[in-house]
């Protein structure tokens, strides 16, 4: 299952994953029989494909990254902080273009898209940002209504209905939160509003950038439940980028681990736990 790692590395230095308590904790996150809670197996065609992607800023970030995401699955991208996980999401949204290699989203190579075509493509993708990235000059209602006003011709009464539905979907009371400004919300509420906004227009793909960063354990659980609920009830294809393994394993149907700009593991959460590569073991143990 793992890619790009020498066999020599695999057998070296098994670390803390031998710890039965840690294994138990991760298995609890996975659910019975090692299956992720509520995550459906990948069933459909490939909707996102990255092939041999290279990208450098001041120094190389991605060095031949390749991954595939199938329709309806939830792919978890793990890796250390600052290693290029969020960059992958920005490449998919074509906020960045690779120096080398290709990124294909919904059947279109993003490099070939004109600026307007890229905007069109982004309308089919919802993005939940690390710090929610809510528009701080407008209230919650206008935040969630924004993609609807921008990308649909719905009349305002219908927009209001959709906004209320989406807020209820993420377990927020529209009566309480609609008029609030983002500054008046807690971190968890901001994330939930961010999710409501991302799914407002029923996107085919939802990208999550560190959806649980900076949240307390209870709120992490709530956000995890929401991601599962989205996958289960709306059938969206998702990519979750995080370094929080416990939260990630709850929602993932497949895991990619990124190291030194490459995907070094591709498999199910259960496969990853069973993997005896030293780096993976250390990553799992210390996360």
């Amino acid at each position: 299952m793992s890619r790009g790692m020498g066999e020599g590395m695999r057998r070296r230095d098994r670390l803390e994953m031998d710890d039965p308590v840690l294994r138990q904790v991760i298995r609890r996150e996975l659910g019975p029989d090692g299956e992720p809670h509520g995550a459906a197996a990948a069933s459909g065609q490939v909707v996102i494909r990255m092939e041999d992607v290279h990208l450098s800023f001041d120094q190389p970030v991605l060095r031949g990254t390749s991954l595939e995401v199938h329709e309806g699955e939830t792919l978890l991208v793990l890796g250390e902080s600052g290693i290029g996980k969020s960059t992958i999401l920005k490449l998919i949204l074509r906020l960045l273009v690779p120096d080398q290699g290709s990124v294909t989203v919904l059947g279109r190579e993003t490099r070939d898209l004109s600026f307007e075509e890229a905007l069109d493509m982004r309308r089919k993708i919802g993005m939940v940002f690390q710090n929610a990235a809510l528009f701080d000059s407008v209230n919650v209602y206008d935040n969630v209504a924004y993609p609807l006003r921008e990308n649909t011709d719905l009349p305002e009464p219908q927009i209001e209905t959709v906004v209320r539905e989406r807020l209820e979907f993420v377990d927020l009371d529209p009566e309480t939160v609609c008029e609030k400004l983002p500054d008046e919300l807690s971190g968890g509420m901001k994330k939930r509003v961010g999710i409501a906004r991302a799914i407002a227009t029923d996107p085919q793909i939802v990208l999550y950038d560190e959806p649980t960063a900076g949240l307390d354990p209870l709120t992490v659980g709530t956000i995890g439940d929401l991601i599962q609920k989205l996958q289960r009830e709306l059938g969206v294809t998702s990519i979750v980028v995080t370094h929080d393994i416990r939260a990630g394993f709850r929602v993932a149907s497949r895991v990619n681990l990124i190291r030194d700009g490459q995907i070094v593991f591709d498999g199910t959460p259960e496969d990853m736990i069973a993997e005896d590569d030293a780096y993976i073991q250390r990553f799992l143990a210390l996360s």
Partner: peptide
């Protein structure tokens, strides 16, 4: 200050992610 804050808090990326220039 306003647009700079939007830049560093990813609000500009959010606009682009909704297909807004």
């Amino acid at each position: 200050a306003e647009i700079g804050s939007m830049r560093v808090t990813e609000q500009l990326d959010a606009l682009q992610s909704f297909g807004t220039d």
